[in-house]
Design a protein around this nucleic acid. Structure first.
Length: 592
RNA sequence: GGUUCCGUAGCUCAGCUGGAUAGAGCAACUGCCUUCUAAGCAGUAGGUCUUUGGUUCGAAUCCAAACGGAAUCACCA
């Protein structure tokens, strides 16, 4: 709640008490709808019963009370049970003045450490569009929580071991002819991904052959020789077989180099990167510990399970019969390691909603093991990015590649900018930087403006827009303001304190209202782990500024006080846009 | 089949801790560049908020059911 909202709320509480002897704990002030007069609206229906008074009358009496008991309120308007409150213009100009004096947009520190795990790629294939949503989300949520006053640690958990990794390793051994990123000209992660696809192709072929011999499908899937070979390879890896480990290291390093390049383009980073190859053994220890304490149980074949039927779930495997660890084994180990390293009070996992069940199980297991890190865990479960044809599948090659898509976006930004002839006087370096900022801005905004929980659709046939509700629209507004400020500087215009000023146009008042609302938005988006709140806000703000820009002139305004006020208004808008999109990982060009 | 999530304009999405005549953008149509960047602004058109019940002074929002869609229920991750 902003300061003005608090002040009004307290006054309303006082008024309700004095007039009607009502004690109301929390006053909810909503924004007045555009078609009515005012900025804040109080819905009085809830009080009318207890006060034994018809809503309009109650609203009127309360409104009169507000008018005569404070000097903030300019006028009131009562429509049925709605009390619309207009504040004096001086109140708004003073709010703008105070905002412009603020050193930082960040909320007060909460003295609490939050750990955010995101990205978490597998080292058997390159990143795709789904990973982009994950990375942009994770980075943005980290930025937002920082701004909301938390101490944030960004971690990445690389899934660098397991049967799926062995699959691409095996396919490489079989069909690779020792090619390397250098000899093939392929980025390391793409090269490895090629063999992941190759494995699946060979596997399917073997299944078909087995089916012809009369085997049923389920057995064929289990008995295919290439799968058995991959399983043997995993066992060898866990036993430390030199040759297998050497191949694993070589291929993993190719992938890491590839990922590093992708992360750089994405503009994301991490405070600490964990590898599952380092955490799975710790997970195995935890399995043993749970086995000893009776949290887990062992079946005859040697596999280890947990029974979660009492929690409404079912039995879950935590260790295979051959003793190799599964996905959840290593997640248990990683949880412990993260706790030891950072002792964070909250731990957020940015992982797709296809793994809802997995995390439900994981959190239950940690509780049952009675670990100190079993509290404060949150699965930020985001929706899948679907194609018009349905789900993306790496194995089947129906994915939108992350590197390709980012490159395309930058290219589109370039084409579009050149078309508009907007880079006069730009150096080549500046131009390329701009194309990057715009292309990535468009992409990030596209992925972040949607509520994280919702699945979203991406149509590769339709390019991502640069007009309307888009990143570039907001960036454009920022550049526009910068342009005005450059002109002001050329004219040697300096900003003076606003002082007592009340000559406000409606579009200016609405702009101040939005600027004042920004801290509420940071708070809301942090509470919900939802960058979409910030994205939508930034768009609203940019739209409102453009309206103002079109209706009124800043530099051509003759009244010096008005001109000064508008310059401050523009400057505060610029700062707020810049900060809000920085929370989304989007750059704000000063010219475009 | 069990569990979970979703269904708002032709399309992509806001709005959902119950509040006034349900909002944006894209696409379509009409205007606005000798005036601070037209990647902009203003306007027209487009809706039984999937359906049916219930709770309430008041429901897109809460509850129940039906219909439609998705995810998951692997010794894959």
């Amino acid at each position: 709640m902003s300061a003005i909202q608090k002040e009004l709320s307290q006054l309303i509480q006082k008024g309700l008490k004095e007039l009607f002897s009502l004690s109301v704990e929390e006053i909810i002030l909503q924004e007045t709808k555009k078609e009515f007069e005012g900025q804040y609206t109080l819905v009085v229906f809830p009080f009318s019963k207890e006060a034994k008074m018809a809503p309009p009358m109650l609203a009127n009496q309360l409104g009169e009370y507000l008018k005569s008991n404070c000097d903030l309120v300019k006028s009131i308007q009562v429509v049925q049970g709605f009390l619309n409150i207009s504040l004096k213009n001086e109140v708004w100009t003073k709010i703008l003045q105070e905002l412009s004096f603020q050193k930082s947009f960040d909320l007060a520190t909460k003295s609490e450490k939050v750990l955010i795990e995101y990205s978490s790629p597998n080292t058997n294939k390159p990143l795709h569009l789904g990973h982009l949503r994950n990375n942009f989300l994770g980075y943005s949520v980290a930025q937002i929580l920082k701004s909301a006053g938390y101490d944030v640690v960004k971690t990445n958990l690389v899934n660098d071991r397991g049967i799926h990794i062995c699959k691409s390793m095996l396919a490489y051994q079989l069909f690779g002819n020792n090619e390397t990123p250098e000899t093939s000209g392929l980025k390391g992660d793409h090269l490895v991904g090629k063999y992941y696809v190759a494995f699946d192709k060979a596997y399917k072929k073997e299944i078909d052959t087995l089916l012809l011999t009369g085997l049923d499908e389920e057995s064929a899937k289990k008995e295919a020789p290439i799968l058995k070979q991959a399983q043997e390879m995993l066992l060898k890896w866990e036993q430390g077989d030199k040759e297998v480990v050497a191949l694993w290291e070589t291929m993993n390093n190719w992938v890491f180099e590839g990922f590093a390049a992708s992360y750089k383009v994405m503009g994301v980073d991490f405070d600490k990167t964990y590898r599952e190859s380092n955490t799975y053994l710790l997970g195995k220890e935890l399995v043993q510990e749970g086995l000893n304490s009776g949290v887990f149980f062992q079946k005859e074949d040697g596999s280890v399970w947990i029974d979660l039927t009492d929690e409404g779930l079912d039995q879950k495997l935590v260790l295979r019969k051959d003793g190799t660890s599964v996905y959840i084994t290593q997640d248990m180990g990683t949880a412990q390691l993260k706790y030891e390293d950072f002792k964070a009070s909250q731990s957020v996992y940015v992982v797709g909603n296809e793994q809802d069940y997995h995390f439900e199980v994981l959190f239950h297991i940690l509780k049952k093991l009675n670990k100190p890190f079993s509290n404060g865990n949150y699965h930020l479960s985001y929706g899948m990015v679907d194609l018009p044809s349905g789900k993306m599948k790496s194995r089947e090659g129906t994915v939108v590649d992350a590197d390709d898509l980012m490159a395309e976006m930058v290219q589109t930004a370039k084409d579009r900018t050149l078309e508009l002839g907007k880079i006069e006087g730009f150096s080549e370096k500046e131009s390329n930087e701009l194309f990057n900022d715009l292309g990535l801005g468009a992409l990030k905004y596209f992925l972040l403006k949607v509520d994280p929980k919702k699945r979203m659709l991406f149509n590769p046939e339709e390019s991502i827009d640069f007009q309307g509700n888009t990143g570039p629209f907001i960036q454009y507004t920022h550049a526009r303001i910068c342009s005005i400020q450059r002109k002001a500087q050329e004219q040697n215009i300096t900003q003076e304190p606003i002082g007592n000023f009340d000559q406000l146009e409606n579009c200016e008042l609405e702009l101040i209202f939005l600027l004042n609302d920004y801290s509420n938005k940071i708070d809301e988006s942090a509470k919900n782990f939802a960058p979409s709140v910030i994205a939508n806000y930034a768009f609203e703000l940019a739209k409102q500024f453009n309206k103002f820009y079109n209706e009124l002139s800043i530099l051509n305004e003759e009244d010096g006080k008005k001109k000064n006020f508008r310059l401050i208004l523009a400057d505060q808008t610029r700062k707020t846009i810049q900060h809000s999109i920085s929370l989304l990982g989007i750059k704000a060009p000063i010219r475009m």
